[in-house]
Computed example of a mutant assay.
Amino acid sequence: MIADFTRGAGYALQGFRLVRRPGVTRYAILPLLINILIFGTGIWFGAAAFQDFLQWILPEWLDIWFVRALLWLIFAVGAALVSFYAFTLLANLVAAPFNGLLADRVERDLRGGRGDEGIQRGLMGEASASIGAEIRKLIYLAAWSLPLLLLFLIPGLNLVAPFLWLAFGAWMMALEYADCPLGNHGVTFREARGLIARRRGVALGFGTVIMGMTATPGLNLIAMPVAVCGATALYVGELSALVPRGHESATATKGRHRKGA
């Protein structure tokens, strides 16, 4: 399990190298700009609103640098949590079509320019398929988040709830980004969950690193394209061999578009 976890973390870190490869970087620019725009705008509005909130709530006798610094530290931690759950989902929803194109380019690069035959779609077809998959991920996230959050309210179980929540976060990061290369080969989100579960230790190692990046100010701005590249390396190294033979051709004859989960 430890070896699998370490290998998965290695795939995530490999994304830093892959995103800088010639021919790959230009496919990463749009996801990067979308990520920076959404995260930057959200943090800017949040900081401005928090500054106004401090002006309103702090009495003059308490308006000193130490108290302000402490409150800003609390805000930074809160912003990291909010950005992880809200901005990440929004950024991936908006950038989903471009992430699929980036995954396809990285896969071809990893396979020496040839790549497996994936589903060929135009940008509009890519957008429709990818956004549909993102909505299904949001439904899956909501379905599991509520019972996990309720564990925090149950005495005894609330002691393990934070660890379960972190494990679920890592699992969601693996599902989120591994779905990019898998989706390029006609694998539905439901099928992807089954495939990734067969490499659970690797997935958790990958997801833990990406989750840490997403929750770290600065690194969260580049996390999305790096994660897509790393997930594509994970697909080539671990998951592609698990996709049933003939799956792609069977999907192609049904209209060469991605089915719903």
Rank of each mutant, 00 (worst) to 15 (best):
A192W: 08
G15K: 02
R68S: 03
I43Y: 11
N35P: 13
N158F: 11
A127M: 04
T6R: 13
G42Y: 01
V243D: 12
T25D: 03
I119F: 00
L62H: 04
N158S: 14
A133D: 08
A133M: 12
W144L: 15
V19M: 06
G237L: 08
M224W: 06
A133T: 10
K254N: 10
G169P: 05
R20F: 13
M211L: 15
A178H: 06
F87N: 14
F163G: 13
V19H: 11
A96N: 09
G118F: 09
A174K: 07
L71Y: 13
A28F: 03
A261G: 14
G186F: 05
N220C: 13
L221F: 06
W65F: 05
F39K: 12
L30R: 01
T25C: 10
A80R: 07
M224D: 00
A28D: 03
A91H: 03
D104N: 14
G218M: 08
G246S: 11
A103W: 01
L70H: 02
I2G: 11
A192P: 06
V243G: 07
A192I: 02
R198P: 06
R136E: 15
I43C: 05
A252F: 10
L73A: 13
R108W: 02
L62Q: 04
A203P: 09
L62C: 04
P217L: 08
N220R: 04
R17I: 01
G237M: 07
R108D: 07
L157F: 15
D52M: 06
R17D: 14
Q51L: 01
A233Q: 12
R20P: 12
I222M: 12
G113E: 07
W44N: 12
A197C: 01
T88Q: 11
M213K: 08
L89W: 10
L62G: 13
L89S: 15
V106A: 01
F45A: 04
W165M: 15
L175Q: 10
Q14H: 13
A241N: 01
A261H: 05
P97K: 09
I43Q: 08
R21M: 12
F66G: 12
G218W: 10
V228E: 01
L146Y: 07
L81K: 12
L73V: 13
F66I: 15
A48L: 04
C180H: 05
D52K: 11
W65K: 14
L58K: 07
D4Q: 14
A49H: 01
G156W: 11
M211H: 02
F50D: 03
P181D: 02
A48T: 04
L204M: 13
R199W: 09
R121E: 05
I2Q: 05
F16K: 06
G100A: 12
Y235E: 11
M211I: 09
L242E: 01
T216M: 04
L221S: 09
L70G: 15
W72S: 00
D109C: 04
G78V: 00
G42K: 09
G212F: 11
F45I: 06
